[in-house]
């Protein structure tokens, strides 16, 4: 019963959702509205679980003096302080919450992302070699697209942005669409396997 009841719930709800999409009617619309209300109620409980998990993991790291445990203190302090100032003074413009956001979150986040440019430059220089025909095609395409995406490409000749657009609109599009179709079919197959009880790993434990 421990397995059959969850499997039945998944099958029935799955069929109801499929029916909602393919058989539009008042009953199916009412069902969706009812379900949406429940989702809104259930969703926020995940925050409680998330906060509990975060505190539990980092508290234990500090207690055991695990490697880099100092960062756990920073994490928990940030959690407590940001939450406290948000609750006390609100999160509107001009509050301490926004001050923390602008002076910690924004520069730290932007710094992490900006480092990418340096890694990409170094990695491209070290690894991008025309070792084979395929690698050469990739290399030439990359150089054209890099030039075509900045004004220097247009300044050299209008052909560079035109070829860039062609690369993005034809070979790139074909590859992306192929991948998307594969992913879509894979998702449909996996959904069917879950609904029919063939794929049961989400239940956890042994069969």
């Amino acid at each position: 019963m421990k397995r059959q009841i969850p499997l039945m719930i998944v099958l029935i709800l799955g069929l109801l959702f499929v029916a909602h999409v393919f058989i539009p009617s008042k009953i199916s619309t009412d069902y969706l509205e009812w379900f949406m209300k429940w989702t809104k109620v259930i969703g926020p409980f995940a925050i409680v679980l998330g906060v509990f998990s975060l505190v539990y993991v980092h508290y234990n790291k500090i207690k055991r003096k695990a490697p880099n445990w100092g960062y756990s203190i920073v994490t928990l302090t940030a959690l407590v302080v940001t939450t406290a100032v948000g609750f006390i003074w609100g999160i509107q413009e001009g509050t301490p919450y926004m001050w923390i956001f602008k002076n910690f979150n924004v520069p730290l986040g932007a710094t992490m992302f900006s480092l990418l440019a340096f890694y990409i430059a170094s990695a491209a220089y070290k690894a991008f070699r025309a070792r084979s025909v395929e690698a050469t095609v990739l290399l030439v395409a990359a150089i054209i697209v890099m030039l075509g995406r900045v004004s220097i490409g247009q300044a050299i000749t209008h052909w560079i942005p035109d070829i860039t657009e062609w690369i993005l609109n034809v070979p790139n599009l074909a590859a992306k669409r192929g991948i998307a179709l594969g992913v879509g079919l894979g998702m449909t197959a996996t959904s069917l396997k879950i609904m029919l009880g063939i794929e049961r790993s989400y239940l956890g434990g042994k069969d």
């Binding site: 440019a117 990409i120 430059a121 491209a124 220089y125 070290k126 991008f128 070699r129 025309a130 070792r131 290399l139 990359a142 150089i143 890099m146 030039l147 995406r149 900045v150 004004s151 220097i152």
Partner: peptide, 24 residues
């Protein structure tokens, strides 16, 4: 920002070409 990006793109292309000259 695009001024900086244009220069960086050219620079990365230069480094890629430099590496490939060495390789050949």
């Amino acid at each position: 920002g695009m001024d900086a990006q244009a220069i960086v793109h050219v620079l990365i292309i230069f480094f890629i070409i430099l590496g490939n000259i060495g390789y050949f």
